[in-house]
Amino acid sequence: MGAANAKTGLGPHTTAEDVRTGLAVEVAGVGFSYGDRVALADVSFRVRSGEFFGFLGPNGGGKTTLFHLLATLSVPQSGRICVLGCDLATERAAVRRQIGVVFQNPGLDGKLTALENLLYHGHLYGMYGSRLRSRALAALEQLGVASRAADLVETLSGGLRRRVEAAKALVHDPALLLLDEPSTGLDPVVRRDFTRYLQELCRSRGVTVVLTTHYLEEADLCDRIAVLHRGSIVATGTPAELKAQVGGDVVVAHTRSPTALREKIERRLAVRAVTVDSTVRIEHARGHELAHHIMEAFGGEIDSISVGHPTLEDVFVHVTGSRFAGADEEASA
């Protein structure tokens, strides 16, 4: 058993499902520091083949560091990363041929047309001629930007550029597509559109997609997500599984003195509450009744109160005890 695992690169905790579908990514005990600042601490996770997997976390949580490791741009200082069955430490060249990478910073040359950018990319992977051309056009088609193939990239809108970038990353037919914050800077409608294209790609071509995001709605569309907070993975599962961890409903009361209110609520109603910024949050099986009781008892101290099914933001608060910074940015935008 041990020998077999060493050969396939699978760890001791591999499940039957992992074996059946194969693993696209396996990360075990990875750590990375910039000087004294720990960016990643003992990070372990798996992504199955064909999965649409998301890393959710606020900015500065370690997402980009992790992304650079997966994209073969840097090496883990401890631990081990296997991508598509190849150990990154020893088989980096093989991994590079099988991954498509979309970085956070724009990776297209604005002075080239969309098609030229894709051809350029194909040449780097040793492709050429009519085979490359038809693959490039097919990739543009797949992302719905074939009609703009002959346009200079600098004349395209942000959303179209992102799609051209994804098409570029697909030219060499990778088994794994990595995207770092692909929808940052896109407006919500364009963002949803883009994520749909990626999902479609994942379903129709069996490409494994791994992306990082600080948008909750984007994470909601993933098959599975890992929540990354201060360099550690604090939760992993399907969005539904994670929300189920939060008991029942979530009651959020906005107030000017959250600490005082929390203490009073906990004493009077015998529930566990947490304060996050200027709110008091309570996870409760019967949220409406609780909200009613709270308003009756402390209505004067409360600006507003809401009851809802748990969102990924609630999951984040549930597992970390702190507010999701990205979500706030979202609300104020």
């Binding site: 994209a71 073969t72 741009l73 060249a93 590079r96 041929r97 991954i99 990478v101 970085f103 956070q104 910073n105 724009p106 990776g107 297209l108 040359d109 990319h121 780097l124 992977y125 040793g126 570029k168």
Partner: peptide, 14 residues
Amino acid sequence: RHAGFLQGVLVSPI
């Protein structure tokens, strides 16, 4: 390098 174009080249098999 600044724009991110170079990163794409660096993770290719070049």
